[in-house]
């Protein structure tokens, strides 16, 4: 037994077979900002065999209050490089593929080659719409999270089993300037929930956040779980619309 994973392999829900499954899994982390910083570290540490990270940005000083995978020495460098180096330092046994690109409907299908789960690390509605449509087209779970201020929300959208992201979130303003204010722990809480659900979805254990959305209110330390249902009029997955149609 690999000593690295012993504390999770001794869990009956995981065991050696579960660890094997994690090693065979491929995950796309769509953005290594506040969310992706934390999911990338936890999923690398857990031994996900292949993690692709996609982000077009370079590291800026205003990222460092929450994007804890990066460090000051990498200012001005591509975030995917900074993140990949840190992930490989944490766990050299996994494969990490950094892709410096702006995720769009033109490149998402290529990014999903060999991927089993899409983990949201984006910071705007449009990218999440691209990820949601790709999730529906390819039948891959989309583990969404979003953060603002002290608050966060998380849900896992699984094609054929749950509502989709666009059933529930119908739009959003494009980020302006440097984006909304965010404290690091809000992103960290959401990302930890995402990492937990990603492991569960790969392992087929427990109850993932399917048709449920956890809302975390950091200032009040209140957590609320909303039950979700599909919207038959959804533009992405509703019967009136064609999920194969690209946006």
């Amino acid at each position: 037994m690999d000593e690295r994973y012993v504390r999770q392999i001794i869990l009956p829900e995981i065991g050696p077979q579960g660890q094997e499954r994690l090693a065979r899994a491929g995950v796309l982390i769509a953005g290594v900002g506040g969310l992706g910083s934390v999911t990338a570290l936890y999923l690398a540490a857990a031994g996900i065999g292949h993690i692709k990270i996609a982000d077009h940005d370079s590291l800026e000083p205003s990222n460092l209050n929450r994007q804890i995978i990066h460090s000051e020495a990498f200012l001005g460098q591509p975030k995917v490089i900074s993140a990949a180096i840190r992930m490989k330092a944490l766990n050299p046994t996994i494969r990490v593929t950094p892709v410096q690109t702006r995720i769009s409907s033109a490149n998402i299908d290529a990014l999903l080659d060999g991927v089993d789960i899409i983990v949201d690390g984006s910071d705007n509605y449009e990218t999440r719409q691209v990820l949601n449509r790709a999730s529906l087209r390819h039948g891959l779970p989309f583990v969404y999270a979003g953060v603002r201020g002290f608050d966060a929300m998380v849900s896992s959208f699984v094609p054929g089993r749950t509502a989709c992201f666009e059933c529930i979130v119908t739009g959003g303003e494009a980020p302006s300037g440097r984006g909304p204010g965010i404290v690091g722990p809000a992103a960290g809480m959401a990302a930890s929930f995402q990492a937990m659900d990603t492991l569960k979805l790969i392992l087929g254990i427990g109850k993932p956040l399917e048709n449920r959305m956890v809302c975390i209110y950091g200032l009040d330390m209140r957590i609320h779980c909303v039950n979700l249902i599909s919207n038959p009029q959804c533009k992405a997955c509703g019967k009136l619309y064609n999920p194969d149609k690209r946006i």
């Binding site: 992706g36 910071d123 705007n124 529930i168 979130v169 992103a187 009029q233």
Partner: peptide
């Protein structure tokens, strides 16, 4: 505990002792 479609807001009554959550989607990251 029940999700309400936007299309139903106009016809859906609020009752005494209801528990209602207004949730603003968060899109930062």
């Amino acid at each position: 505990g029940k999700y309400i479609y936007p299309s139903a807001y106009d016809g859906q009554a609020v009752f005494e002792n209801d528990t209602i959550e207004f949730i603003n989607p968060n899109l930062g990251g």
